[in-house]
Amino acid sequence: MTSFEAAVSAEDLTKRYGTGDAQVTALDAVTVAFGRGELTAIMGPSGSGKSTLMHCLAGLDTPTSGRVWLHGARHGSADRVELSGLRDDALTALRRDRMGFVFQAFNLLPTLTAWENITLPLDLAGRKPDLGFADTVVDAVGLRDRLHHRPSQLSGGQQQRVACARALVSRPDVVFADEPTGALDSRAGAEVLGFLRRSVDELGQTVVMVTHDPVAAGYADRVLFLADGAIVDELRDPSADRVLDRVRGLESAARGRAGVGAGA
């Protein structure tokens, strides 16, 4: 990590919901960069704005103010795209071609087979999948014998692995994972996390993962801690225990700020 090169970056990212008394600030002038070839975890308690941050970074949500850049790797630094101000079609194409997504659940289209789900972003772009790379990915997630099954015929863990494979198969600039293990038992969760880790180590993939699980965060190269819409702490090469310590520290700090009962 001697030369930090950003894959995604944001500057003064602010997101407010509602107006007047009911206004809520989900993100408060966040400036952040996510390193290329790193697995970055975003942690924080419920309502800390971690999902909102990810949605804004991915162009799924529009920030109230601030800017987001996606830095192309393969195409050199000239291929820097600013997301703010892009129209829906351009954002859609960007998501399709240069981002990958893994959501907590309901990731897959129920009518498509595992293989069709994996190649869907390429299909949508009208590109032929790179079969060699697709094979690598499929083997890596261990789904070779399940490719022609429908999502309803797969377990939750298998479904999530299909989602991971889909996120990777188009070799995106960044993969966004929103609580990817939230709906899984610990073993299936470990499989998915292990796979994301390997995609970074072996394929040089950039992954940004939102999670509230210290164990999941333990797989990351770097953990960002969010509270009340701001980045309050950061940890490099964490272990689950160090993450947990940091979370406890933040929670007690939050309780100290807001009085008893907050932070739940």
């Binding site: 194409a93 998501r95 997504f101 897959l108 289209l109 869907l120 972003p121």
Partner: peptide, 11 residues
Amino acid sequence: VFRALGASRPL
């Protein structure tokens, strides 16, 4: 999900 993965509105 379809839209998030890159399906445009016309599609």
